[in-house]
Simulated scan of single mutants.
Amino acid sequence: MTDTPDQDRTTVAQSAVPAGVAHPVEALHEAVQEDEAALAATAIPDPGPVPEAQAHVGPTDSDAVATSQAAAMATEFMPYKELFQLMGAIVFVLIVLAVGWNAMHASGIWPE
Score class of each variant (00 low, 15 high):
Ala72Pro: 00
Ser68Thr: 15
Gln54Ala: 09
Val65Asn: 12
Tyr80Ser: 06
Met73Arg: 15
Lys81Asn: 05
Pro51Cys: 00
Gln54Ile: 05
Ala71Tyr: 04
Phe77Val: 10
Ala64Gln: 11
Ala53Lys: 12
Val57Gln: 04
Pro79Glu: 07
Pro59Asn: 13
Pro51Thr: 05
Ala53Ser: 00
Val57Glu: 00
Ala64Asp: 11
Pro59Val: 13
Gln69Arg: 02
Thr67Val: 01
Phe77Asp: 00
Glu52Thr: 06
Thr75Val: 12
Ala72Cys: 01
Thr60Ser: 04
Asp63Thr: 12
Ser62Glu: 14
Glu82Ser: 02
Thr67Tyr: 04
Ala53Thr: 07
Pro79Ile: 02
Val57Tyr: 01
Val65Tyr: 10
Gly58Lys: 01
Gly58His: 05
Ala70Asn: 12
Tyr80Ala: 06
Gln54Thr: 11
Ala74Arg: 08
Tyr80Cys: 08
Thr67Leu: 09
Ser62Met: 08
Lys81Glu: 03
Phe77Arg: 08
Glu52Met: 04
Ala74Pro: 03
Lys81Val: 15
Asp61Thr: 12
Ala71Met: 10
Thr75Ile: 12
Val65Ile: 15
Pro79Cys: 10
Val57Leu: 01
Pro51Asp: 10
Thr60His: 05
Gly58Ala: 04
Asp63His: 13
Thr75Asn: 13
Glu76Arg: 12
Val65Met: 14
Glu76Cys: 09
Ala53Leu: 10
Phe77His: 08
Lys81Trp: 12
Asp61Asn: 11
Met78Lys: 15
Thr60Tyr: 11
Glu52Gln: 03
Met73Asn: 13
Val57Cys: 02
Ala64Glu: 03
Met78Ala: 08
His56Ser: 08
His56Val: 08
Thr67Asn: 06
Glu82Leu: 03
Ala71Val: 06
Thr67Pro: 05
Lys81Tyr: 10
Glu82His: 01
Ala72Phe: 10
Tyr80Ile: 06
Ser62Lys: 14
Glu82Lys: 01
Asp61Gly: 13
Asp61Ala: 07
Gln54Phe: 05
Ala71Asp: 05
Gln54Ser: 05
Pro79Gly: 05
Asp63Val: 11
Pro79Gln: 00
Gln54Val: 02
Pro59Gln: 14
Glu76Asn: 12
Ser68His: 09
Ala74Asp: 01
Pro51Ser: 05
Gln54Trp: 06
Gly58Met: 00
Met73Trp: 03
Lys81Gly: 04
Ala70Gln: 03
Tyr80Trp: 12
Thr75Arg: 13
Thr60Gln: 09
Ala72Glu: 14
Ala55Trp: 07
Glu82Gln: 05
Lys81Pro: 03
Gln54Gly: 10
Asp61Pro: 08
Gln69Ser: 08
Asp61Gln: 02
Gly58Thr: 02
Phe77Trp: 10
Glu76His: 13
His56Gln: 04
Thr60Phe: 10
Ala53Glu: 11
Pro51Phe: 03
Glu82Arg: 00
Asp63Gly: 13
Asp61Leu: 15
Ala74His: 02
Gly58Phe: 05
Gln54Asn: 11
Ala53Tyr: 03
Gln69Gly: 02
Ala53Pro: 05
Ala74Tyr: 00
Gln69Phe: 14
His56Asp: 05
Ala70Cys: 04
Asp61Glu: 12
